[in-house]
Design a protein around this nucleic acid. Structure first.
Length: 484
RNA sequence: GGGACUGUGGGGUAGCCUGGUAGCCUUUCAGGUUUGGGGCCUGACGACCCCGGUUCAAAUCCGGGCAGUCCCA
């Protein structure tokens, strides 16, 4: 009885499957990723454990982007009102979400940037004069501010989020479109392959695209409660911004042409939500080996008598694995307490080093995701990176299976209702993704609270028969889900 | 956008209805003992979300603000 009470104050006290919302609230605080007590609506304090994770994620993304020819920049955090208002679709979409900075009357009003098209495009105009300057692929890491609805959730829906935004300019539509494809591949390479988060790349319906874009492709990730969360999205801006800012270049024939631009925005703070939610269990976080701030935690187990010997052996092991992120927990706590702590924090591997291990020149490894312990010989330590890969592969496989088994092909309205009610994604034939389909979408939204998320890109999913809602001939196969 | 509920040491809570001494568990700190899954003993620090009102007296009642949770559009 007493033990139970103690546990309730330290570890997680709710079941992830039964009460995901509460589980999420507990895990972000108890693992010391976040502190929400500063109490500014929509804003959070990210603690060292969370910051190191986010830094690691940035590293993966930036390395990948630079490999693909994107160059880093740093832009101001503010946008003059005049810039923000240049592109009509853009301003219409973003105005309600802007935080305005009011200064003296004589100075121009400034917006805290909600996104930076209207900073990059005027610079493209200055930097790009000829087709020889193209393509120009830039990015910045930083935060943006959006005055989001009153229902904010830490990291899921906040008013400041931490991301990378790429902004790219091309000579032709074709090149711009292939950039959009490259962005989807970047999401695949990093979010899916490195962070073990599978996604559905979906082209959004006309009525749900980025404000100012020709089209938007989002990455929908399924959360444990059956809602999807939008992860990196990429946008073909076409020539909308370049026309608004009069950003032109001279082509090979000496003609003046408007730039074709695209943008891509992976948000680390949001992807972290998926990492926490997808991999975590009822003991706490389970972090992919690739990004865990500590990949291996060593727990020395000793008595006063053999303390020095055990610590020395632990040091030896640490030295052997020094290329990995490894730490010895030498604090004055009992081993059991340390187990709970590091499991909560999601560290992939724990090495238990005691008398027994010392005498046999071995060690006990505990694997966070499977909860299994096994022995490893000291001279087999070099296998640990391989175990790390296998670890991540398991996380990936589990997440892929979860996504797969939660997509249900629906042939009737009733099936859609049922599927959404069962917290799954419905896949169905659909009349139209332009204005003509909006009515059906509104109907679905009304009866299920779910949205038309779009059509799968790069995989020809042929519609057959009729739209399940209006009975007109189907032109697309769409995915329907509730969303965050 | 509309509604309901909530806010007490770092965390979890009791007390609030019926106004008057803020109790408990845990964490933290000091010391001792212990160390293979949250051990034990002694001692210490630490709180009524903010502003206003009612009252001799407010954690408690009333109003407003801020913040959070949940439900509905």
């Amino acid at each position: 009885m007493q033990k139970k009470e103690k546990e309730s104050n330290r570890g997680l006290t709710v079941n992830k499957e039964k009460n995901f919302s509460e589980w999420y609230s507990q895990i972000i605080e108890k693992t010391e990723i976040l502190d929400t007590r500063l109490g500014i609506k929509g804003f959070v304090v990210i603690r060292p454990w969370g910051t190191k994770l986010i830094e690691k994620m940035y590293e993966f993304y930036e390395e990948e982007l630079q490999k693909k020819g994107h160059e880093p920049t740093i832009m101001p955090s503010v946008i003059p009102e005049a810039n923000l208002k240049k592109e009509s679709g853009h301003i219409k979409g973003f105005t309600p979400e802007v935080f305005w900075l009011e200064k003296g009357k004589e100075e121009e009003k400034l917006a805290l940037r909600p996104t930076s098209e209207t900073l990059y495009t005027p610079m493209f105009k200055l930097w790009i004069r000829s087709h020889r300057d193209l393509p120009m692929k830039l990015y910045q890491r930083g935060s943006v501010f959006r005055y989001d609805t009153k229902a904010t959730r830490p990291l899921i829906r906040g008013r400041e989020f931490y991301w990378i935004e790429t902004h790219n300019a091309f000579a032709t539509k074709k090149e711009a479109e292939s950039q959009v494809q490259e962005d989807i591949q970047t999401t695949e390479n990093i979010m899916h392959q490195k962070f073990c988060i599978p996604f559905l790349p979906l082209k959004r319906p006309e009525w749900d695209k980025f404000a100012g874009a020709e089209y938007t492709i989002g990455s929908d990730v399924l959360m444990p409660d059956g809602k999807v969360i939008q992860q990196p999205s990429t946008h073909l801006m076409g020539q909308k911004f370049s026309k608004a800012f009069n950003a032109k270049f001279k082509n090979e024939k000496g003609q003046e042409k408007y730039l074709w631009t695209t943008a891509y925005g992976p948000a680390m703070s949001r992807i972290l939500v998926s990492i926490i939610s997808t991999h975590g269990d009822n003991r706490g976080l389970v972090l992919p080996f690739s990004i865990s701030p500590i990949q291996i935690i060593i727990i020395p187990i000793f008595t006063a008598k053999d303390k020095n010997k055990i610590l020395k052996y632990s040091q030896e092991i640490k030295e052997k694995l020094k290329d990995l992120r490894i730490k010895i927990d030498e604090t004055e706590k009992r081993p059991g307490e340390k187990y709970y702590k590091w499991e909560l924090k999601g560290v992939p591997f724990r090495l238990e080093i005691g008398k027994e291990e010392l005498n046999n020149k071995e060690l006990t490894i505990y694997i966070r995701d499977t909860h299994k312990k096994q022995k490893i010989k000291f001279n087999q330590l070099k296998n640990i990176p391989k175990l790390g890969k296998e670890f991540d592969n398991r996380l990936k496989k589990n997440a892929e299976n979860f996504l797969k088994k939660n997509i249900v092909i629906c042939k009737t309205k009733e099936q859609i209702k049922k599927t959404i009610k069962e917290r799954k994604i419905a896949k169905t034939n659909w009349c139209s993704l332009d204005k003509n389909g909006l009515k059906c979408a509104e109907y679905v939204e009304k009866v299920t609270n779910a949205e038309i998320r779009g059509t799968f890109v790069n995989k020809k999913e042929k519609p057959t028969g009729k739209c399940v809602i209006c009975n007109k001939p189907a032109t697309a196969v769409v995915y329907i889900a509730k969303s965050y």
